[in-house]
Design a binder for these strands. Structure first.
Lengths: 202, 202
DNA sequence: GCGTGGTTAAACCAAATGGTTAAATCACGT
DNA sequence: ACGTGATTTAACCATTTGGTTTAACCACGC
């Protein structure tokens, strides 16, 4: 691992836990196993480094999903595939959502710089919903609600990990990890059950 | 409104948007329409003021719900009532969840001071689920997953407001507010549809 | 009128922090 | 051996920021 990589790794960790204002350059240097001078030798300023970490996280979290989804031919397929992909994504960067939300909350301008570059496949979902609702296969639901429902159920337990672990699992790390692992399947079942109209062909 | 109240109101606003480290005492004073000297005259230190705002938010968000829920006699009732109450709560303090999550993420010790004072009605839900699943009324589901699913779908759209408003609603405040208003009913329908087993008595 | 407590203004202090600098060292290929 | 870029050390600077202090002011009830 090059020095630059270890700096970025350290910056990711510190920024994502503490936020821009809470992070200390010294802490990032320590975490990277180098000193402050070298840190500035690589990345001139805190803002500079932060901007790299933030946009990296932002770009990874949003558009990654929408890309390979156009293939879905029915809603069930879409839902299962979407949940699978998004779960993979967030498992790799569990702190990113909380980090992004906090920083945008603190400085809404951050969103302006990145707007337009991304999107959710609302149009596709809208079409799938319309077609299958007309065919009596699923309950009609606004695509925005469906998407947000799914994303909420995936992201929130990662963002709220410390609280949930305390309130629901007596701080047992293992019990919580097991809980998280179950969720991909649980959410898929939950969503499909919620939107599917069951046939009564008895 | 007394000076103390206006300080607390200002502190709530600034702390919840910027976090402990991002907040400036001067900004809180300005927001309250007073000067820094008076701010310290009322609340000796930043930590002191922050602690008040944080534990206030924390205590309001968690246990408020679990109290008046023991009355529920069936799961449907519980779900509807829980969603209604939690929605009321969060509508009054939409920034609280994001704030709490961020601060706990930054300093996990914050959770230790408050542990044990609260809880979610998992036992009650577990009983209701068991009874009605045995009776073939609902799909069996771990109570923890059900609770987290519901809470996720309620909280997340508030926490992610700026992003969702941009990605899904072209920054139209009105469209987003309308979306949020729909969610109480949408979530209730969604959850009930997900857990209910429909009778085929044709 | 007078004291008391809320309030302001402005200057001030000490600590923390982002950032710089200078000199020395180290590792490496040439 | 030499040079170059990476790295360290340590001191240093300027700014920000939480917090204090002092004096004056104001409104109020007694």
């Amino acid at each position: 691992m090059t020095t630059e990589e270890s700096i970025l790794k350290a910056a990711r960790k510190v920024f994502q836990r503490k936020g821009l204002e809470g992070a200390r350059m010294q802490e990032i240097a320590d975490e990277a196993g180098i000193n402050k001078a070298l840190l500035h030798y690589y990345f001139r300023s805190k803002e500079n480094l932060f901007e790299k970490i933030f946009s990296e996280a932002f770009e990874k979290m949003l558009p990654a999903v929408s890309g390979y989804l156009s293939e879905a031919t029915n809603l069930r397929q879409f839902v299962v595939f979407f949940i699978e992909k998004y779960f993979e994504l967030i498992s790799e960067m569990p702190y990113a959502p909380q980090f992004i939300l906090q920083e945008i909350n603190r400085n809404p301008n951050l969103i302006a710089n990145l707007t337009g570059k991304f999107g959710l496949p609302v149009e596709l979902v809208k079409e799938l919903i319309k077609r299958e609702a007309d065919a009596g296969l699923i309950v009609p639901i606004r695509p925005e609600h469906l998407m947000i429902n799914i994303i909420s159920m995936i992201i929130f337990p990662f963002a709220a990990k410390p609280i949930i672990m305390t309130v629901l699992f007596k701080n047992k790390q293992q019990a919580y990890d097991e809980f998280l692992n179950q969720r991909q399947a649980v959410i898929a079942d939950f969503v499909l059950a919620a939107i599917t109209i069951k046939k009564c062909d008895q």
